[in-house]
Design a protein around this nucleic acid. Sequence first.
DNA 1: GCCGCCATTGTGGATTTCCACAGCCCCTTT
DNA 2: AAAGGGGCTGTGGAAATCCACAATGGCGGC
Lengths: 206, 206
Amino acid sequence: MKTRQVYLVDDDAAIRDALAWLLRSRGIDSRAWSTAESFLADYNSAMSGCLILDIRMVGMTGAELYDQLLALGCAMPTIFLTGHGDVPLAVKTLKRGAFDFIEKPFNDNELVDRILAALQQEENQRGLDASRTQIEERLATLTEREQEVMACILAGKLNKVIADELQIAMRTVEVHRAHVFEKMKVRSAVELAQLMSAYRAGKPRQ
Amino acid sequence: MKTRQVYLVDDDAAIRDALAWLLRSRGIDSRAWSTAESFLADYNSAMSGCLILDIRMVGMTGAELYDQLLALGCAMPTIFLTGHGDVPLAVKTLKRGAFDFIEKPFNDNELVDRILAALQQEENQRGLDASRTQIEERLATLTEREQEVMACILAGKLNKVIADELQIAMRTVEVHRAHVFEKMKVRSAVELAQLMSAYRAGKPRQ
DNA sequence: GCCGCCATTGTGGATTTCCACAGCCCCTTT
DNA sequence: AAAGGGGCTGTGGAAATCCACAATGGCGGC
C-alpha cells in the first residue's frame, strides 16, 4: 500500500528545501521538482497525496500545470503558493477546483494545517472513488434485460406492472429481479434504491 | 410572486448608476444602496435574487457585510467587485461561498453573464430549499413510533424483524408503516428510500 | 365525561414477492 | 456436438405485505 506524499513544485530551491524540511519535521513524506515540465513528465495516476505548486514559474506556470493535470484526470488537492496579488488568476484557479491559495511568505503552521486537510480530503475522495468503481463494476455485469427490470424496480413498480410493460411473464420479472439483487449485492429494493441514489449523487465528476 | 432582483451595494455613485443602467438595458430589475450598513438595515429573507457588493467601502466593507448576511442565513449568490489585488481576501471570501470576484473595470457582458448565472443558481437553490422544507414538514408529522419504524424500513428490515426488535405485533408494524407512507406521501419503501437519500444528500447547509 | 390522538392487537382474506424444480429456444464459443 | 449464457415460462407452495373491520387502553384538552 503506497504512502501519501506531498509533491512540491517550485523553481525556487530555497522554498523547496524549506518546505521539504518543514514537512519532514512533521513526519510528512515529500518529493520536490524544480519545474512544472519535469513534474508533468513524472506524473502518473498512482501518485497519492497532494500538490504544492508555485503559481508562477519559469517555463510552464503552476496554473498551466494544474490545467494539464486536470486534463489528465488528476484529483489530488492542490495548494498554490503565490507571491503576487493576482486576484483574477486566484479566482479562476479556485473556481477550477484548487484546494487553496497561500501567499508567501507563509506561516508554517497554517501551511501544514492546510496540507493535512488536503491529505485528508484526498483520502476521503479515494474512498469515494473506490466505492464508485465497485458499483460501476457491478452495474457492468448486468444484462440489458436486467438493467431494464432494475430501472422499473427503482421506479417503484410492482412486478406485474413491469411484466405488462416489458411484455413478459411475472415469473421472468422475478428471475431478472433476483439476478439484479445478486449482481448488485443487495438484499432488498430499498437497499438497491439507496445504493443507486448515493451513486448518482456522487456522479458529477468530470 | 415576487420578482428576482439584483441588489447593488457600492459607495461609488458612478458605479451604481452604470450598473443600474446596464441591468435595465438587459431587462434585469435592480435596486442600489450606497453603504453596507443601509443595505443590512433593509435586508430581509424574502429578498430574492443576487448581490453585487463592492469589496471595499467606507464604513462596513463588502466582505464584512457578506459575513453578516451569512450569519443571517442569506443564501443569495454574491458577486464581489474589487479594484485591488488582495488575494487572501478573495480566497477567503470565495471559500466562504462567494459566487464570484470581478475586478474593476469590468466587461459588461462578462458581468451580466455572471449575474444571470447567479440568478439561475439562486432559483435552483430556492427550488431545492422548498423541497427540503416540504420533506421536513412531512417528517415533523411523524410520531416517535412511526419514526422508529421508518428507520427500520430504511434499514431494509422485514416487518417481522421490526416487530421482534420493537417488541410489538407484526400487525402494529404494518399500521405504523402505512402511516409513515401516508404522511411522507410515498407509495413504496423504494420511493421512501429515494426521498430520504435525496434529503440527506442535500443536508449540509449550515 | 367526551373527544381526539396514539399505541397496540386480532381476524380474515387478498395480493405480492420469492424461489425450488423443471423445461424450452437461440446464439456463441470451444 | 457439447457447453455456457441469456431470455423466457410454468407449477406449486411458502413467506411477506397490505388492509378492512373491529376492539382496548392511556393520556391530554375542552
